[in-house]
Design a protein around this nucleic acid. Structure first.
Lengths: 208, 208
DNA sequence: CTATTTGAACTGACTGGTCAGTGCAAAAAC
DNA sequence: GTTTTTGCACTGACCAGTCAGTTCAAATAG
């Protein structure tokens, strides 16, 4: 008795679900959702096919829950970075910079998830489209919040377009990080962070 | 004789190939490669299934040629923008700005292609992976070229990381544009361009 | 302590459907 | 008269989802 109903408990079920998430995320990142078979996922997770269906209603439900899970981790990490900077009395630029770093750390730790997220984000006509929209907005909203505070603050020009700039910043970090992973994995995180900071603070074309 | 080998000839064959490209690009952008069937592509193109196989060896060959075709258009457009600015005696910042605009125009005209490109770029283990790498490098190289000239020039700090900054810039434009198309399509191209220019020139956080 | 029961978790062979690619004869286009 | 397209039936592989049966750990009984 007890066990399966307990939320947050570390049951056997939770462990297999975790294994399935991990197997699915790498396979789908590599091959895409449709090209990945449930048999492959089960095999990679070291579990029978039936177990997948015991734990998830369908292949796409598995995927949707995976998305929610992953973006949840990302937003938490971004929010934490912003709050930490605020607590330490940093400026909004510092907060943005801390969030860039948090983004890089996340991508470094979960490269497959990021890959998969980017690949699916702009697809239309897919079952999980609405899930993805909601979840995307959560992440971008954290950045928008900091930008808006900076504008109210006087720290940022009030001419900036908050939603668009937030999206562009997220995109910058996402794409730079994926390129880093894919094409120059030997570089260090600090290195990549430094390059993006410079770009962010206008030290590329701003003065000098 | 003649006709199929001629590059740029406007044969009947070329016309059906073009129709197939257009049908395939929108369908694959919406659904992904694996979820798109050859029957769908043929139907959308208004052509018999046999014709697809008369013109392309396989579904993935069709896709690879599509990729080459599309990225060819993009690099040509970026290069043209950079050269035009140079000819008009513009600075390197002007050249970057012109390239940002050229990128936006391209994405505005071929949104499906862009969508599809981003979705496939960081996948591994796929047949066309090498094609994509080559083709990506061609596009990024144009931006790298301008950055490097600017550094030699003294116009940009020699501390910038050219490949990484180029990748980040491309990513910024790509993601901002896709977000624009997907989530706020009512905005004008000039609007989006202005927001990105501001970000590029460090007028967000640089000084006020 | 040992034996028995319970039910959640898991298994893997099986099914029904889908789809890439083929083959080909006849029609159209050039 | 040659090239290209059509239409359509067919095949064989592959795959999402199902289900009858098995495992196992914890609970209860003796």
């Amino acid at each position: 008795m007890e066990s399966s109903t307990t939320p947050g408990g570390s049951t056997r079920r939770e462990a297999t679900r975790q294994k399935l998430y991990e197997a699915a995320v790498t396979l789908i990142a590599e091959q895409g959702f449709s090209a990945t078979t449930v048999d492959e996922i089960a095999e990679r997770a070291g579990v029978a096919k039936g177990t997948v269906y015991y734990n998830f209603a369908s292949k796409s439900v598995l995927f949707e829950e995976l998305l929610r899970h992953g973006v949840g981790l990302l937003t938490a990490s971004l929010r934490e970075a912003a709050e930490r900077t605020a607590r330490d009395g940093g400026s909004k630029v510092d907060a943005l910079d801390a969030m860039v770093r948090a983004g890089l750390v996340f991508i470094d730790r979960y490269p497959s998830f990021t890959q998969l997220y980017v690949a699916e984000l702009w697809r239309t006509n897919r079952a999980w489209q609405s899930t993805l929209m909601v979840v995307r907005q959560e992440a971008v909203a954290v950045v928008e919040g900091v930008l808006r505070e900076g504008v109210d603050n006087g720290e940022f020009s009030d001419e900036i377009d908050v939603p668009l700039t937030a999206a562009a910043l997220v995109g910058m970090v996402l794409v730079a990080a994926l390129d880093w992973q894919a094409f120059q994995p030997e570089r260090s995180l600090d290195d990549v962070h430094a390059a993006l900071s410079r770009l962010l603070q206008g030290r590329v074309s701003g003065h000098r």
